[in-house]
Design a protein around this nucleic acid. Structure first.
Length: 478
RNA sequence: UCCUCUUUAGCUCAGUUGGUUAGAGCACCUGACUGUUAAUCAGGGUGUCCCAGGUUCAAGUCCUGGAAGAGGAGCCA
């Protein structure tokens, strides 16, 4: 039976004979005794292997370097040194895989995140990415657990789609047609009738529309899957391939929707604090060392404090119109410090405005509702004022928009009118419109970018560092 | 896509007004040390100065173009 290092470190069965396997982080030594810090990814902590140097193991020890994999039979003992409670006195040590120190790029020291991105196949082996990977797993689990506890049914929506009506962004085409000399029709356009699906298909930008179909029977559903956007976005908050959580619930109005989103975010944050303590503490320390280089006033809140703060405070719910008033009367607006000055109603809010509301004015997460209909999607429920729709965006400090959602327009005629106004082709969308034709009900939903949640929980600054193999413009390695 | 910055050893970076043979710390190798905690101490320099042109007696340094990376903006989750 293989015992993980996590279990061994929590064990007090001193004197037990154990076998431990893992990867060497560091080896230190003198003439007579060597110390190996061994990690197997089960925890951020290493177990110390103590090796008495003798003629039999001298050669083996010489081949053990950072990155090598070894198997150790030994005795679990109380540590004689400081820094750890438990360690293993090696009896027999076996090299599973050597690691040439001249070629292995990871050293027992800090590397820049940019460098580690270039060696994403090895960065799992660092403390930082080990911690992030374990937290990512915990967050995936927490999401499913949250919805399961509330009676939501997980639905797998398609990744390949022929619908392009979502309007959420540029799409990646899926085709088996040759890239060179693709067949064309009479108008000179690519003829997709001979393509695999007999029509033009793309990777999905959202599972929302299909989730709505399911919600019209199962009441409460959610999707949690990959999403693809071919936008040429080069920021710390965007990926071309990311994972999105999209609940959709029948009979939920915008307030139920906001409650759901806020509960969910808090549930996940609490789950992380309760279950990933050591990893979060490590990331917090790492972050604070990085912050030391910044001037005092630019330093951000300590990670655990920041997470607790979100748990303990209700998100501020503000209408778009109120937000515009606040911004119009704000100091940076009056002193023309904003790059985009707010002078009237109707403009979309820029990042600087969102940041002002969250970080300066309310100093906590903000939910903005009732946006002008012109700047939002066709499927959002229109308010009685004729100007606004029941949209909600949740804004988080340092991240911006983490959730975007709305109550959906359930009235067939209003929806069709709005689609026509916005140039959304209704003829390809009969399957969607049928939900409003047969037994339509008020319903709501939202989209949560999983990696943005990860950014918040880990405190990392770049979205490319919270997903194992980031896909961004000009980068699809590994 | 736009704006700004960056690119020098395996990694992090220094390199002055253009001027000998391009430097430091860490990693690595060798040696010392009976318990170390990213061990310590002594010795050893490993290079397509991102690429292609240009200016110049002379370019890591200046100019033009390109590539890659980062930060910000837009788009959004």
């Amino acid at each position: 039976m293989i015992i993980s290092i996590k279990e061994l470190l929590n064990s007090e069965n001193y004197g037990n004979k154990v076998n431990v396997k893992g990867w060497v982080r560091t080896k230190r030594g003198s003439k007579n005794v060597a110390f190996i810090a061994l990690n197997d990814g089960s925890t951020i902590n290493n177990i110390q292997i103590v090796v008495e140097v003798n003629e039999q193991n001298e050669n083996i020890l010489a081949k053990i370097h950072t990155g090598a994999s070894i198997s150790v039979d030994g005795e679990l003992v109380k540590s004689e040194g400081k820094g750890q409670n438990v360690e293993i006195n090696s009896i027999k040590i076996e090299i599973l895989g050597e690691s040439n120190p001249d070629e292995y790029p990871l050293q027992p020291k800090k590397h820049s995140l940019e460098f580690l991105r270039e060696i994403a196949h090895l960065r799992f082996r660092t403390n930082t990415f080990g911690a992030i990977s374990r937290i990512r797993h915990a967050m995936i689990f927490a999401v499913h657990s949250f919805f399961n506890e509330r009676g939501f049914c997980n639905v797998h929506t398609p990744l390949i789609t022929a619908s392009d009506a979502e309007g959420a962004g540029e799409m990646f085409r899926v085709t088996t047609l040759p890239a060179k000399d693709a067949p064309t029709n009479e108008e000179g356009n690519v003829d997709f009738s001979n393509d695999f699906f007999g029509r033009e298909t793309n990777l999905t930008v959202s599972g929302q529309l299909e989730a709505e179909l399911a919600a019209m029977a199962l009441s409460k559903v959610y999707t949690f899957g990959p999403t693809f956007r071919a936008e040429n976005s080069n920021t710390t908050r965007h990926l071309a391939e990311f994972w999105m959580i999209e609940p959709e619930a029948a009979f939920y109005d915008i307030n139920d929707n906001m409650d759901l989103a806020e509960d969910m975010l808090k549930y996940c944050v609490k789950y992380a604090l309760d279950n990933c303590k050591e990893d979060i503490e490590f990331l917090s320390k790492r972050l604070q060392e990085e912050e030391k280089t910044k001037p005092q006033n630019e330093r951000s809140q300590e990670l655990i404090e920041k997470l607790n703060f979100v748990l303990e405070n209700n998100f501020e719910r503000v209408t778009y119109t109120e937000a515009i008033d606040i911004l119009r009367n704000s100091k940076p607006n009056k002193k023309k410090k904003f790059q985009y000055i707010i002078d009237g109603w109707g403009a979309d809010l820029q990042s600087e405005h969102e940041r002002y509301l969250v970080e300066k004015h309310f100093k906590k997460p903000v939910i903005l509702i009732d946006y002008p209909k012109e700047i939002k999607s066709f499927y959002m429920k229109q308010n009685d004022d004729g100007k606004t729709v029941r949209a909600m965006d949740i804004l988080f400090p340092g991240i911006g928009e983490i959730v975007g959602g709305s109550q959906r327009e359930e009235n067939y005629d209003k929806l069709v009118t709005r689609m026509n106004e916005m140039g959304v082709p209704t003829k390809d969308m009969n399957w969607y419109l049928d939900t409003r034709k047969f037994g339509t009900v008020p319903h709501s939903g939202f989209g949560l970018g999983f990696e943005r949640l990860m950014l918040f929980v880990t405190g990392m600054g770049n979205i490319r560092d919270v997903i194992p193999f980031p896909r961004t413009p000009k980068n699809a390695e590994f």
